[in-house]
Design a protein around this nucleic acid. Structure first.
Length: 859
RNA sequence: GCGGGUGUGGCGGAAUGGUAGACGCACCGGACUUAAAAUCCGUUGGAGCUUUGCUCUGUGGGGGUUCGAGUCCCCCCACCCGCACCA
């Protein structure tokens, strides 16, 4: 007969049981407007894109947030912890094209699947607030926000460049441009100008920069990245007259941060899209060809900057207002039309990029800046862009660079050819997307009246479901009836805007909507102003700039239009590292999921076809590269608590982690070991009160209370891996104490109860199981307060001190804590007496409770 | 290219300028078992030696500050993230 282990913890029945108990007790539901008077705490993780399955990145992200939410709840806060879906985006359209699926059906099916998986993880979420950004009840309110922004002057329509695939007749995302070609058609991508909607984020540039200073609980590096992105710079605009006008243009204005180096000019360079470049191209086939070549570079800044620096000499010349000399005008592929004025003056001695350009095309390299101490008269392979003294520069010669800037600007203004200018790298936010699966832009174009807002009573403008992806381009353009509508102003036949919003808009205000997801307006004042800002936001570092900056901007715009009362949406931010994994491609170069791949030693083959698979590098898990791992298998085999414990224990949360299955077994062993340990202790019954503890029992009590302090500290500082280590130590110590006396039993019981509380944020199901065994009738641990350490038990009475000679460890000694220098030095001297023999002590260093160091030399 | 980060045993990592390697994984040894699994106990950075222990060495590389550096400063290398239409 098979023997059954009676004490083995069965997660597969326990976890759903406790999830049901929490739901029954309503532990995690928060009201829109709480009245209990408790302090509020809003915990939010970046909501997921419903790709269909949760992956380890989600498990990590939501476990981190859940630890905070459960901990804060135990610390007596009203916690808001919602969940929803960032549900618009390209993958649904791709799925529609590939599998002939409806984007809406595909998306909602994915959501249903992922919701079940998240619920199985036991997160303390308030599911009553759930929404998807593709719900008309959400994006309709978003359309309302857009119209309010428009009224407030934050919306503009203007032209900008996109990646155009001339074969598929469609706009491509940067990630769809591979080596300058369309991912599907393989056609060379062109830059094309389209009329698009923009949000005027630059109106808030100074405020977005200043606001960073108030974000004390944001990582410094994220603030620094945002600061650089906003890119405040002070410089000058300088007008250069053309020696001969071209196409009716008589001058070119450049933006420069280095007006002090104007005497070091070697050439003037303009962007390929610059009006002068276009004028030149009219009568110059070479110029036209060069501009066309640049147009195939793609629109991304990375592509432009990483491309080989190339130029085309237009044959035009400009006159430098300071030197009176003539300089050649080049069209250069690294000059950006979007930044500054789309034209620069090249000063090779002070700018590395200019220097490389000058060397490549044999242009002059005048030296105008010298290091403070020595005067360098020749420039080698490196430009000098630091502070120095201006040389060979007429009236600026001899001035330090800072003063020279001021003097140069003053002279430019005097001559009427330039002025000081503040410039921002930040550009306005282009929000038009020529795509179907997004929020329709609520605008009607009328030939007579121009673009008109959709009237409030006609909102939401909903996406039609009966669309076809047979033809290339945006299905909204091909829909037989959707776009035909009467002009709200004059009633004439007009057409709907068929572009949809950038999906970054969807994620720019969802945190506000969560506070009152049913409200008939975008936000409800009492709720949104109670809960915002989010106290702890948790998400990937890959969102450090765009998503977080857009959300900060949106909050300001919503403040301006009366929808919220704050400017900063996220008071605290934690950026977790990414989960990485090997990536796989088949012979055709298509990405494969890890579970499609079978590895036999070094060789990898396709599980079904048996064809060879190339193993790529370890990189960020992403749906586009399909190198994701399905955590449901882990949950089935080991349970949610094991999965949660593992993602917390293996790595500091801010660091990247490579997912491997090794170690999960270890976490599972700990779950079983803890359950067994507490089972034994519970079986001993509630211990009697004890007055005097023996030294072993006292040591365990001290460790247990030190562990409370250490785990509490780890909770506050997001070092959950350290908390895990401390809990292992405590569990080992409880198991190690085999004292049979009443004091031993009492200490063990107390420590077991403490450990149940301390693991609760991380392994909530097991914690309930342990707590119910130890303290039946005390309710759910999810509804119990966090333990407080007894200060008397935190006092340390003995310490181990290091004894060093000349900084090298030679001995250790156990001494009473807090003992003075004299006694410690005397004992240390004794401990290393043989090493001190024949030496003269030059210096003694005593650090209380830590170290004694003798600095010696031979006598 | 520009901006931001990371680098410590076989692996993940710990360490207010003060005993580097806590804790976990893996490995090895032992106990239990007819056997295996599970469980429990113990060892483990490297090199060397006269091996109950001792010495040297060691935190990506090279310099520096300090009585003392994984930690602070300078230079370099490798890898990762972002770069505005992936989310």
């Amino acid at each position: 007969m098979q023997e059954i282990e009676p004490t083995r913890y069965d997660f597969s029945s326990a976890e759903p049981r406790w999830q049901a108990e929490w739901e029954k007790a309503g532990c995690f539901a928060a009201p829109d407007v709480p009245t209990g008077g408790k302090p509020k705490y809003y915990v939010l993780e970046m909501f997921p894109y419903p790709s269909g399955k949760i992956h380890m990145g989600h498990v990590r992200n939501y476990t981190l947030g859940d630890v905070v939410a459960r901990y804060k709840r135990a610390k007596g806060f009203d916690v808001l912890h919602p969940m929803g879906w960032d549900a618009f985006g390209l993958p649904a359209e791709n799925a529609a094209r590939e599998n002939n699926a409806s984007p809406a059906e595909w998306t909602y099916a994915n959501i249903a699947n992922m919701r079940a998986q998240l619920k199985r993880m036991g997160f303390s979420l308030d599911w009553s607030r759930e929404f998807a950004t593709c719900d008309a009840s959400y994006y309709g309110q978003q359309q309302q926000l857009f119209l309010d922004f428009w009224k407030a002057g934050l919306v503009e329509r203007r032209e900008s460049y996109v990646n155009w695939d001339p074969v598929d007749m469609t706009v491509l995302a940067n990630e769809q441009v591979i080596d300058g070609r369309g991912w599907r058609s393989g056609a060379v991508v062109e830059k094309k100008k389209l009329s698009q909607w923009f949000l005027k984020i630059t109106d808030f540039a100074p405020d977005l920069l200043d606001g960073l200073k108030t974000l004390e609980r944001w990582p410094e590096r994220v603030k620094l990245m945002q600061e650089n992105w906003i890119g405040f710079s002070q410089g000058a605009e300088v007008r250069f007259d053309l020696a001969a006008p071209v196409g009716g243009i008589g001058d070119v204005t450049v933006y420069t941060t280095r007006p002090d180096t104007l005497f070091g000019m070697s050439f003037l360079a303009i962007a390929p899209e610059h009006p002068v470049a276009k004028a030149v191209a009219e009568g110059n086939a070479g110029a036209a060809a060069f501009i066309a070549e640049c147009a195939s570079q793609g629109t991304s800044e990375a592509a432009i900057e990483a491309a080989e620096k190339k130029g085309f000499d237009t044959g035009l010349e400009v006159i430098n207002p300071f030197t009176g000399e003539r300089y050649p005008v080049w069209i250069a592929n690294f000059v950006l039309m979007e930044y500054g004025t789309g034209a620069i003056f090249g000063c090779p001695c002070g700018d590395q990029r200019d220097l490389e350009f000058a060397r490549k095309y044999g242009l002059s390299v005048p030296v105008v800046v010298a290091h403070a101490d020595d005067d360098v008269s020749e420039i080698g392979a490196k430009a000098f862009d630091g502070e120095g003294v201006i040389v060979n520069s007429g009236f600026l010669t001899g001035l330090p660079t800072g003063k020279a800037k001021e003097a140069a600007i003053a002279r430019l203004e005097e001559l009427g050819v330039g002025k000081a200018v503040t410039n921002w790298r930040l550009r306005d936010w282009g929000i038009s997307r020529q795509r179907y699966w997004g929020c329709p832009i609520p605008v009607i174009h009328c030939e007579a009246c121009g673009p008109q807002p959709v009237p409030a009573d006609a909102l939401p403008v909903t996406l039609p479901n009966d669309v076809s992806f047979d033809k290339p381009g945006n299905p909204l353009d091909h829909h037989p009836s959707w776009r035909h509508v009467a002009c709200p102003a004059c009633g004439a036949a007009a057409r709907r805007e068929t572009d949809t919003f950038d999906t970054f808009i969807d994620s720019s205000w969802y945190f506000a909507r969560f506070t009152a997801p049913q409200a008939a307006t975008p936000t409800m004042a009492a709720a949104v102003n109670h809960w915002l800002p989010v106290d702890q936001y948790v998400g990937g570092i890959e969102h450090a700039i765009l998503h977080l900056l857009y959300a900060r901007f949106f909050t300001r715009a919503m403040h301006k239009t009366g929808h919220v009362a704050v400017d900063e949406p996220f008071a605290g931010l934690f950026t977790q590292g990414m989960v990485t994994h090997e990536s796989y491609k088949d012979e055709q170069g298509a990405w494969l999921y890890p579970d499609e791949v079978s590895k036999q030693g070094e060789l990898a083959v396709h599980r079904v076809t048996g064809k060879p698979v190339s193993v790529g590098r370890v990189e960020k898990m992403s749906k586009s590269k399909r190198n994701t791992v399905d955590p449901t298998l882990i949950i089935e085999r080991f349970g949610a608590d094991t999965a949660r414990w593992f993602v917390l224990s293996d790595n500091p949360p801010e660091r990247d982690v490579e997912w491997t299955e090794a170690g999960v077994q270890g976490s599972y062993r700990f779950v079983l070991r803890l359950a067994k340990l507490v089972e034994q202790i519970g079986a001993e019954g509630t211990p009697e009160a004890v007055e005097i503890y023996g030294s072993e029992a006292k040591k365990l009590r001290q460790l247990a209370h030190r562990t409370i302090a250490a785990v509490t500290e780890a909770m506050e500082s997001f070092t959950f891996n350290v908390a895990v280590a401390k809990l292992y130590e405590l569990a080992n110590a409880i198991g190690g104490l085999n004292g049979e006396g009443a004091d031993g039993r009492a200490a063990r019981f107390e420590a077991a109860e403490i450990i149940a509380h301390l693991v609760a944020p991380m392994m909530p199901h097991l914690a309930e199981h342990l707590f119910a065994r130890l303290c039946p009738g005390a309710g759910l641990i999810a509804a119990n307060p966090w333990p407080e350490p007894d200060p008397a038990l935190l006092v340390v009475d003995e310490v181990t001190m290091a004894v060093q000679v000349n900084g090298k460890l030679r001995a250790t000694m156990i001494v009473p804590a807090g003992r003075g220098a004299e006694a410690n030095i005397a004992q240390a001297m004794e401990a290393v007496s043989t090493l001190l023999a024949g030496q003269t002590i030059v210096k003694q260093i005593h650090v209380p409770d830590r170290i004694v160091n003798f600095v010696v030399k031979p006598s």
